Simulated assay, not measured.
Amino acid sequence: MSAGLQISGVSKAYGGLQVLRDVTLRAPAGSITAVIGPNGAGKSTLANVISGFVTQDAGTVVVNGATLPPGRAMTRAARRLGRTFQNLEVFTGMTVLQNVAMGAYSRQRGGHLADLVRGPRSRRDEREVHEAARALLDRFGLEGRADSLVESLPFGEAKLVEMVRVLAMEPEVVVLDEPAAGLPPASALPLAQTIAGMAADGIGVLLIEHNMKLVMSISEHVVVLDQGQVLTEGTPTQVQQDARVIEAYLGPGPMTTEELTR
């Protein structure tokens, strides 16, 4: 089985509502696979199944050949799977450096952060974590913000800190749940560069996003969800030209493929 993320036959229902139906897709290592679809298509539920916050009714989630136990979010860091959320998730009251360092701590000793907090911690471990965090901040142009409280940052920079914290986990797969949500246009390029950098590092990226311009500009493969199942998939060009995608995602009307990518 190839490296990266593989989802096979995943289904999830809440009562009589079938939210996901037999979803199968791949996010290979070193590439960006996007998942798009209208509101209510099941994208967020899919992200929650992958990251262990929701237990699927059927199907498997596999990272680098290892099947992840359903519904165990706390084990994902140890399995080298990282995730960001639609809403900003940072540790307020802590500096940018401390936020990023938390990502590194989460992978220490099999992901048991409590061991690091309660037990004796060597100066070497502490120094290595902070050196790694500072190197990441420097790489993404945030070195000048290291000692700033994260809540003092503009929204776009705070979202970037969240993504850098995930990278500090040294993940092999990341799930990005609408990273462009709420971002000003000026933040689009740094975001795209950060996501592309993840793939360049060999990480398998699953990008769930509504911003079609971002999706089509950086993704190698696009999967379209509609009513909880895969409607179609292919290259960005193939998906843009699929009449079913335009109808399901944008509704019937005079919308053109050029407008789809604006």
Rank of each mutant, 00 (worst) to 15 (best):
S8W: 00
E128D: 13
L153Y: 13
M74T: 07
A66R: 15
H112Q: 12
G52Y: 06
E170W: 04
N99Q: 07
E128S: 04
D57G: 10
L113E: 10
V175I: 14
G42H: 09
V161K: 12
G111W: 14
Q229P: 02
P190V: 14
R127G: 07
Q98P: 00
P28W: 02
V100E: 05
G156Q: 03
Q6H: 11
R139K: 10
T95M: 04
I7R: 02
T194L: 15
G82K: 03
G234N: 01
L153Q: 07
L97I: 02
V223G: 08
P190T: 15
V174N: 11
A133M: 02
G110M: 02
S11Q: 00
R26K: 13
A133R: 02
G103W: 14
A133F: 07
V129H: 03
V23K: 15
F85S: 09
S44H: 11
G40F: 04
K43A: 08
D138V: 10
I218E: 13
R107G: 00
D22S: 10
L231T: 10
L46V: 04
G202T: 12
V173W: 06
G197S: 11
L25G: 03
E209P: 12
D226W: 06
L206H: 03
A158V: 06
P120E: 13
I195T: 01
I246P: 00
K12F: 03
L113P: 02
A243T: 13
A41K: 08
M212Q: 00
G15Y: 00
E258C: 07
R80K: 15
D147C: 09
S122V: 11
M94V: 06
F140M: 01
G30C: 12
T84M: 01
G93H: 08
A47R: 05
P154I: 10
K43E: 15
E151R: 08
A66M: 08
H210K: 13
T261L: 14
A29W: 03
P120V: 05
M1E: 13
F85I: 09
S152G: 09
T261W: 09
R134C: 08
R83Q: 13
Q229V: 04
D242T: 04
T235Y: 04
F85W: 08
G228R: 00
P154S: 06
S152V: 01
M94C: 01
A47M: 11
I36H: 00
S122C: 03
R83G: 06
E128W: 04
S122A: 03
N48A: 15
L25E: 07
L46R: 09
G9D: 14
A77R: 13
R134A: 15
V245M: 06
V49P: 06
E220P: 03
V215I: 12
V10H: 00
S152Y: 05
Q98E: 15
A77G: 07
G30H: 07
Q86I: 00
L214Y: 05
L191C: 10
L136I: 05
G40H: 03
E126Q: 14
V62H: 12
V10Y: 04
V173Y: 09
P185Q: 01
A101C: 09
A29I: 02
M255D: 04
G93I: 09
K213L: 02
P236A: 15
G4P: 09
A3E: 09
L191I: 08
L153P: 01
E151A: 14
V175S: 11
A114M: 15
S44C: 05
G65P: 04
R83H: 01
I50W: 05
T235R: 08
